[in-house]
Amino acid sequence: MRCRARVVGLVDGRPVDGERAAEASTAGELLEGLGLQGRAAVYASGRRLEPGDRLPEGCRGVAVLAPPPGVLVARLAGPGERVDLDQLAGLMAARAALLGGGALVAFMGFVKGVVDGAEVASLEYEAVEPHASRRLRELAERYASAPGVIDVAVIHHYGPRRPGDPTVYVLVTAETRGVAFHAAALLLEEVKHRAPIYKLERRSDGDYWVLGDGARLPRRG
């Protein structure tokens, strides 16, 4: 039969939320017809279908989540790159709603303009690769597997940032707000303390290294 299903998520790095059609009678055939085998999961009225499971009559209530629920995105964002937070949050909310979720927590950190009475000119982030990207993925996977969590997204900028510029995004969708708040807070702290991303704060009174706990050490030399 011709199955029209809603596809929601990121496909080849691009946001997608719309209907796509393919000839299919099983979940596996649908993914193959959409070119998403191994990269997505099929749901019918909130229940995940295995590849051999037959699709409901008329494909009612069928949705395809690409990638499957878990880590939607975990990556670094380069200098000058603009992250569309509204778009990302919208995709995550749409995916969660299809699975019975009802909460999304989004955190965005940005550069301070004043610290200890001194004006901040810039905050420079240096990411140690490939370790930084790998650690972001590992941390996101850990919290994505927590009970009640549906999707996790974490994006961290590197390079020079000006006061008011975004620096890090952490988003979590979950069945309840308590789960979402808890997972987002813990994930953020892990990113700050465990990801090998170093911060140099350039201020009117000198340059300072910024530690994960917010402490500042004067740069020597």
Score class of each variant (00 low, 15 high):
Arg54Thr: 06
Gly102Trp: 06
Gly58Ala: 11
Arg60Gly: 15
Gly52Leu: 08
Ala103Pro: 04
Val114Asp: 05
Ala94Gly: 02
Pro69Arg: 13
Val111His: 01
Val62Leu: 06
Arg95Gln: 05
Gly80Pro: 08
Pro160Asn: 07
Leu139Phe: 06
Phe107Pro: 01
Tyr125Arg: 07
Val111Leu: 07
Gly52Tyr: 05
Gly159Thr: 12
Leu55Asp: 04
Glu129Val: 12
Val128Ala: 14
Lys112Ser: 15
Val105Ala: 02
Thr167Pro: 01
Ala140Asn: 05
Arg162Phe: 13
Gly159Leu: 09
Ala121Trp: 13
Ala89Glu: 15
Ala146Lys: 03
Gly58Gln: 06
Ala94Gln: 04
Leu171Asp: 00
Gly148Ser: 14
Asp84Ala: 13
Tyr158Cys: 08
Pro79Cys: 01
Leu136Cys: 03
Thr173His: 05
Arg135Thr: 13
Asp165Cys: 10
Lys112Tyr: 01
Pro56Tyr: 01
Tyr158Met: 06
Ala97Trp: 11
Pro130Leu: 11
Arg75His: 03
Val149Lys: 05
Ser145Met: 06
Pro130Ala: 08
His156Cys: 06
Arg95Met: 10
Thr173Leu: 01
Val115Arg: 11
Ile150Met: 03
Pro68Met: 02
His156Asp: 08
Gly148Val: 13
Leu72Glu: 08
Ala127Lys: 02
Leu55Ala: 10
Pro67Asn: 08
Arg60Cys: 12
Val105Met: 00
Glu81Pro: 01
Arg60Lys: 14
Leu99Asn: 01
Leu55Gly: 11
Ala106Asp: 14
Ser133Met: 04
Gly113Ser: 14
His131Pro: 00
Asp165Gly: 03
